[in-house]
Amino acid sequence: MKSDIIKELRMGIRTSRFLVIIASFLFFAILTPIMMKYILPQLLHNQFQGMNEASISQMIDMSQKGALLGYMSDLFEIGTIIVVFALSGLLAQEIKENTLVLPICSGKKLLSIVGSKLLVFSVFLILASTLGMVISYLYAGILFSFDIGLWPVLVIGLLYGGYMIFLLSLAMLFGTFIKNAIGTGFMTLGFSLFIYFIGSYFKLHTYLPSGLLIGAQGILNNQADQNLGITLALFLIMVFVISKITLIRLENKEWNER
């Protein structure tokens, strides 16, 4: 298990997967508050000449909270795409390029291979998402004013990280069906958007991983109308089940075929 974890860490660093995800999170964490503070008001000003400051601040929430909400929606729109495509090759590529054949022959357990992938990238996603949130929080705080505590921000970071773990497990599962990394990425994205849609349409977010995102927004808006415990428990069960299916699919696979 230890050597598998080291291997995944090296993979993350040397194929610059870690870099891609961290850089894009930080980029949006800094960009969004700046957009809110300087660029958006000026753009609106240019568009509607007669508008005064007051009505502009009515249209956009010019506060730390508003900036964080903006960052969260950026993360959902662009962050997830980047995360999914950066991690879609995790299993798909290994299966396509037969790189798992030698490890399997030398006695590596599939459980430990899949487990260490899940572990390393889950921890990384949690850290990256929390770090991004905190940076955005600090930046927005400096630009506007600090009017939220740090604690809810950390919780939001964890919840977003959790949603990305769900995407990671999905990408691994679809990787066992489609051998193509890009195809896996599109399928994962499509499926996650489908779930989000289902959650919105039937008001089922509480029971779906997308509830983590809604719950995070709820925390920021001080609306605790959702039972986060249920969402979290179901999310953990879902990740576990998806990983188990991935494992079963790998165990019944014939390797090294042409």
Partner: peptide, 22 residues
């Protein structure tokens, strides 16, 4: 056609393959 991880060195590859619990 043996496939290795291109981002590991020869030494790291063998260390990785060598450590497998059993």
């Amino acid at each position: 056609d043996p496939k290795f991880y291109p981002w590991l060195s020869a030494c790291e590859t063998l260390t990785y393959l060598g450590d497998s619990g059993t």
